[in-house]
Design a protein around this nucleic acid. Structure first.
Lengths: 192, 192
DNA sequence: GACTGAATTCTAGCATCGCTAGACAAGCGA
DNA sequence: TCGCTTGTCTAGCGATGCTAGAATTCAGTC
């Protein structure tokens, strides 16, 4: 059994290598630069090897998305845990979210913009995605206000932050007032 | 001079034809299906003709975006003009915006998601884009609230709507509560 | 330690993409 | 009718994602 175990371990290692290479390439040169040929070259295997791990490029994007979602959840939790009071926590959440989007644009796109073939907002949604939403819910749920369902409130705040993140990054919002927009959004939406 | 005028008119007609073909193809089969070959076939000219009108596919997307932005501005103005009171106007604006995104997903993407090579949030931003923002500003400016710059407020509401529109359409938000999210957003953000 | 069969990996290639050089044809003014 | 500009087309380049089938590697057996 040792032989087979070793092979499985090596396969898992190689899969991680593929995902890491895709992520790094996407983050440095954009997703358009993530081609199967370049990816194959990076991992020092031929193209078809990629297809023994993933159904296609879409699934590789999905794998990066799942990895990123876990990190986003952790970043949000770390930021909110360090804040005192619900107002501070919501501000910390907003900034942590937007910071993540700014610092990991390609990963953010994989999670929230590109098609990685993942099911969202369903029962069979992968755990990392559910957990990222849960991380938002933990802090936002307590400031939803009377008569507002925490989940619904979280979705709405999340969508607003997503809008700010994507429009800002594509240059459709002027960069100078980014901070004031976040303040306005958080102050108005949250019931402290 | 009549000959030259006729030629220019024919060129302009053909350009409109290209944009219309791109838009229709994108709306029916997605932007990935909008290839230069298919486009050329639709307008019954060869591929290189496209490049005598546009620098490349990106510019064609940009042309669709400009056309769409004008329509979005008109749709928003029509909806708000028909509403009485600032609260009703803001609700009408939100619904008109989201309806536009739902009914013209490809065009919406051309304006707000894809790279059409257009400058945004700058002095040299094309008029249709400025006008679409102006249409939002006209209604939202009056409910920004004390001490909040109308432009900043408009940007923030716009971003929120954009987030709702894109996350909903990509299936990342559950469809059933779309209406309640809009209500929540508008009620909290606007100072009536 | 050589051999066989299965698992793995590679080479080569398909159809398609955006885009362009250079050949060709149309249609104008003289 | 002719010459020349202007416009259009054919053909092709270097990419893309993906795959069939050949070639190789390597584990288990004699």
């Amino acid at each position: 059994m040792s032989v087979q175990e070793r092979k499985e371990r090596e396969r898992a290692d190689r899969e991680r290598l593929i995902v890491a290479a895709a992520r790094e390439l996407a983050e440095h040169q954009g997703w358009d630069a993530v081609t199967t040929r370049r990816l194959a070259e990076r991992i020092e295997y031929s193209q078809p090897v990629l297809y023994s791990h993933f159904r296609g490029k879409r699934e590789i994007i999905g794998a990066v998305a799942l990895q990123g979602a876990s990190e986003l959840a952790a970043a949000v939790r770390a930021a909110t845990a360090a804040a005192d009071g619900s107002r501070a926590r919501v501000h910390a959440l907003a900034h942590a979210y937007l910071d993540f989007a700014t610092r990991n644009p390609a990963v953010y796109d994989a999670i929230f913009q590109l098609d990685g073939g993942l099911p969202y907002a369903r029962e069979d949604t992968p755990e990392p995605l559910k957990d990222a939403f849960a991380a938002l819910l933990e802090t936002l749920g307590e400031v939803a206000g009377d008569g507002i369902e925490p989940g619904l409130f979280t979705e709405t705040v999340w969508a607003s932050l997503h809008g700010l993140a994507t429009l800002a990054r594509s240059g459709r919002l002027p960069p100078e007032d980014a901070e004031r927009r976040v303040e306005l959004l958080v102050d108005r939406l949250a019931r402290i």
